[in-house]
Amino acid sequence: MSTPKWVVTFQIYRKKGNADPHFDEFKLEVSPDEYVLDGIERVWAFHDRSLAFRHACHHSTCGACGMRVNGAEKLTCITLIRDVTQDGGVLRIEPMRNFPVVSDLAVDMGILYTRMEMVEHQPVNSDAKEAIQPEARPAGPVGEEEDYIRLSDCIECGLCISACPISGSSPEYLGPAVLAGAHQHGIKGNEQLLKLVDSEDGVWRCHSAFECTAVCPSFVEPGWRIMDLRKQVIGERFKRLFRGSSPKIIDTMEASK
């Protein structure tokens, strides 16, 4: 069996230090069933060892290889070349937007990680039982239901921040991943988290472009989560308006400090 070969031109964004950015072109022979990241790695391995980019796991778990492919945000390790270009076509590879470029395709995602920590995003999902349907569980001699835990869907790849038009013009906006993280953690009884998302830089800044949901490689649906957070915040504020604020929550907050 012979795999068909395509010739694809990789136009790769290059930027080192304070020099002006430019694009380098590399013509590669690839299989259409390889992934975009495979091509980028081959450029690094055989053409230009100075190319900087981030990657690790190759199976959409680490969230390191987010880039823009022909303008659209993609997790390059699971993006088939077949799906984004054709034989003789071009792949324009650029770093994610809305993060400072460190070098070439590598961006500094520090602020995203800081904010994910602020909203107490956990790599292991708290509603584990609900999240894994019985039929999706691995077969075999395993324990009780409580033993099933799963990883959180969000892999902190930053693609949604790169795709969001509001994050693009307003870096103060917490951003889709962070608000989705707050939603997954849950704001019930968490005064600090409620204050964080119910602010100028929180859920009210979203203007429903839903690009976050469109580019998310992990089906977190940040757009839906932001909308659901709004519903929760409005509900909470109305409850307090009519019943007065709940002193119990404030007490526990003070005690935990």
């Binding site: 921040i161 038009p165 472009a209």
Partner: peptide, 29 residues
């Protein structure tokens, strides 16, 4: 994110209206 801090308000606003590689929902926005 400091990557956008150097640009002028006008060029920042221009980004809102760029529909390239975006979905139909951005047209709504």
């Amino acid at each position: 994110m400091t990557g956008v801090s150097k640009t002028s308000p006008l060029s920042r606003a221009a980004k809102w209206f760029d529909p390239r590689a975006r979905t139909i929902s951005t047209i709504g926005f």
